[in-house]
Amino acid sequence: MLSIKGLSKTFFPNTINEVKALRNVDLTLEAGSFTCIIGTNGSGKSTLLNAVAGTFVPDNGVITVDGTAIGGWTEYQRAKLIGRVFQNPFAGTAAEMSIAENIVMAMRRGQSRPLTRAVTTQAKKEIADKVCMLKMGLEDRLDNPIGTLSGGQRQALTLLMATWLKPKLLLLDEHTAALDPKSAAKVAELTRQIIRDEKLTALMVTHSMQQAIELPDRIVMMHRGQIVEDYQKEDKKRIRVPDLLDTFDRVQKKELFDESVMQLLAEQYV
């Protein structure tokens, strides 16, 4: 469903602030798979998601979604294929508009929106039916401004909006990181439920090792713009949080292994 080949991006090239954010990344996601990206700060996780979403133009590489190369597409053109949930629960919705109005916008994403009444009785019924699954009682508050809701409620609605049209690919960028623990757990559970029920292909970035273990069926670890580990199938099933922490530890140990360590070990490791 998603194929990334040879993706590279360097920010501020040839300056003192040069950052090689992505280094020749290859990644393929099967249709209906749920993959999680973990990694240290600055490892390139969000940059990879942004590259797929079209936030910037990569230096090299090819991205295809469902067999279509989208390299030349703008961010809004890609929105026809890609649903997206951001870390900030206030980023994916319009605060002054009602719940129903926000959702109607999502229902027509990528389609023409002529000057007709959008929130029809029929649309409202459809929205109420679907919002009901959130089990937050929001189906009775569809006319309320979405800005009056809590962060957790807004993020749950954002998730619903991002998946309303069953996107070819769902991108989740630390979408529970800004929520309180209870809301985060609720949104995480909704994420699992929606992706499973709708058979979506999803790529999620998270810093939560617990989520990385519990939610997806594949874990990719990034470090310094490269994929350094890829846990799939049996490997993914047997891995636990301490194993992931060990892997982080191992990756960071390599960073600390410099030439002075080589000299030390040449003298003392017989």
């Binding site: 191992r250 140990k253 390599k254 600390l256 292994f257 410099d258 030390l264 070990l265 490791y269």
Partner: peptide, 14 residues
């Protein structure tokens, strides 16, 4: 040689 040695030996680093 360095950095190949990092593929042969692991150092605790801390």
């Amino acid at each position: 040689a360095f950095p190949e040695i990092r593929d042969w030996l692991s150092f605790s680093g801390e």
